[in-house]
């Protein structure tokens, strides 16, 4: 019993310690971000690896999610004779929730894990130490560009995911099932508000981008420099990113869409 309480206490203290560490790391990244923008090609390279390389999976998944939403939405809506609202249902679910969340989860497993692996391997092979010994800050040269690459990619990928999803919903609803094209778009437009729905969705994806990118670079930088340590760090990146995305989503949704 005492042992259990003690373990819980240790766990709690470790958690707080870790939180402080990651916050300090975040601060360091911000301080050393200058180079990421003065030497833009460093960040562009990471934008390529985290953004462009995730493009395919994001577009394909977005399309399928849209198709499923179209099918399921139509199934439910036509029972109430409200199949004209299919566009609204597809667009609102994508723009508010599914776009940022699913794109975030995919991004964490596709790009976040790759960033962790890359930084982790650089640590294992002493490349980070070597850089530090060459009087080049690894945080400025390696960590910050990867962080910003992720932060910039995420909202763009989420927007592409949502757009692709709406297209998928349209394909099923209008092209395949035969919902009225005009009703699909006009109902959607009157129900989806730019500031309230679209912008809040974009804000969500930006926050997820910061969270996933920070977790990915942190886990890589902090990993135990062995093969096993790197593989554990990658797992932690995916798991903690997923948890962070879902928890942050809940918090933000409760702030943004309270329905007054």
């Amino acid at each position: 019993m005492v042992g259990a309480i003690r373990r819980l206490g240790t766990l709690f203290i470790n958690g707080v310690w870790q939180l402080g560490f990651i916050t300090r790391f975040f601060w360091l990244i911000l301080v050393y971000s200058g180079q990421s923008f003065t030497r833009l090609h460093l960040t562009l390279r990471e934008l390529y690896f985290s953004g462009v390389m995730s493009l395919l999976i994001i577009l394909v998944s977005g399309l399928f999610v849209g198709l499923v939403l179209g099918l399921q939405g139509y199934e439910t809506l036509q029972r109430y004779g409200a199949s004209d609202s299919l566009g609204t249902l597809v667009a609102l679910s994508l723009v508010r929730e599914l776009g940022p969340v699913v794109a975030g989860l995919l991004f964490a497993s596709r790009a976040g894990s790759a960033v962790t692996a890359e930084i982790g391997l650089m640590k294992v092979t002493e490349q980070l130490k070597a850089m530090d010994m060459m009087a080049v800050s690894p945080i400025a040269r390696v960590v910050a560009p990867r962080f910003w690459g992720g932060v910039i990619s995420m909202p763009l990928l989420a927007a592409l995911f949502s757009a692709m999803g709406v297209f998928g919903g349209w394909l099923i609803g209008v092209v395949a099932i035969g919902v009225d094209d005009g009703a699909f778009w006009s109902q959607m437009q009157s129900a989806v508000d730019f500031r309230y729905d679209v912008l809040n969705g974009v804000i969500k994806s930006c926050v997820f981008g910061v969270a996933v990118a920070l977790i990915a670079v942190f886990e890589g930088y902090d990993c135990v420099p062995t093969a096993e340590g790197v593989s554990r760090a990658i797992t932690r990146t995916v798991v903690s990113s997923a948890l962070a995305i879902l928890a942050l989503d809940f918090v933000m949704t409760s702030f943004m869409f309270r329905g007054q």
Binding site: M122, T125, E126, Q127, K129, A130, M133, M134, A135
Partner: peptide, 14 residues
């Protein structure tokens, strides 16, 4: 450190 050079055990090439 700019005036020091260190060769790591396995080279640590990028």
């Amino acid at each position: 450190r700019r005036r020091m050079g260190m060769l790591f055990q396995f080279g640590a090439l990028f």
